[in-house]
Nucleic acid binder design. Sequence first.
DNA 1: GGCAATTTGTTGTTTATACAACAGATTGAA
DNA 2: TTCAATCTGTTGTATAAACAACAAATTGCC
Lengths: 189, 189
Amino acid sequence: MTQPKTDPRVLRTRKLIMDSFIELSGKKEFKDITIKDITTEAMINRATFYYHFEDIYDLLEKVLSEVLLVNLNYDTYENDELNEEAFVRIFTAITNFQKSLSNRCHRGYEDTIGRIIREQLEIIFYKMMLKQNRMEHDESLKITSVILSWGIYGASVEWKRNGMKVPMEEFIKSAIPFLVSGIDFGSKI
Amino acid sequence: MTQPKTDPRVLRTRKLIMDSFIELSGKKEFKDITIKDITTEAMINRATFYYHFEDIYDLLEKVLSEVLLVNLNYDTYENDELNEEAFVRIFTAITNFQKSLSNRCHRGYEDTIGRIIREQLEIIFYKMMLKQNRMEHDESLKITSVILSWGIYGASVEWKRNGMKVPMEEFIKSAIPFLVSGIDFGSKI
DNA sequence: GGCAATTTGTTGTTTATACAACAGATTGAA
DNA sequence: TTCAATCTGTTGTATAAACAACAAATTGCC
């Protein structure tokens, strides 16, 4: 629980870089954004960029992760239980997230984006289940999180592929009964 | 002309401190603002404050100078000549500046504020006259700037002391003919 | 293809900022 | 007044950021 507190200079610089990248993403396509563009906008030295990020793809990943977390309203979920409402909200969040990205400038990075979404979902599901089931670090919960993250993400992809005919909420709700029974399994023993 | 370019870290940190101070000034009285308040708001270390400013009065001076410069729209004046319109605008600017300050939180610092205003006026007058008179660094221009800065500032004080009965523009305009003839003296030789 | 210009990533050195610890001053309440 | 708590200003040390210089890769144009 007691994390070693990261240097405020680091937080400040990372925020400058990420905000600049988001800002630039609104003006240019991803492929046209150079490191120099970002560091100039952020008013930091180009070498400093490489102190924090491997390259521009690393930055992209981290920015997307963070934006997604904000969309998912992370703090709220930490205190919530994994019920029908939670599934609907998470599904809605990631689906909207994907829609907003595909409108924008990150064409050709669907795979990356998909991976990022699943990774974040996995973390969130695991934490929520851990809380709900009151057990120690449990391998079976981890695997369940993986399955859920792939499942929910897949559902989102499928919904788009089907032409988004059914309303989002309705679409996911039809699968929830099964999901919730499955989730409750652990706590019923 | 070729200034040695200040470290971007310095610019960034100074801005953080000054902005935080301005922000806090809106919430608290000056006397209740501590260095810790400022550095916490700015998310910088307290020791770093003392790297840039002697103390909180030093900060106050520099913030006021900067705010005043913005009010005076410095860049514009650099290209303008010192005619009637310029005098009116400068007078209006400093008078409004003083009014806005006395409404706020800096009670008891009228002397400081007055000195800051005169210092800035002096710089501006000198630059404008230098341009207008096309002569090298000239001591008589400097002295004239001093006299003008005190004079204009005094006029502003007097206008307030008289209960601000006459409109600002009218008040200063009545003194301008003399001022402008005086100023033109140099270029007429 | 070939060539110039730009971009990428890296490195070594200098400088600004973070941080903890300190003594002395100031505040405020008992 | 007295005492505790807070605030001020300073110092030494560790670390992040700036900067300049570089080779290699990429881009764009002929």
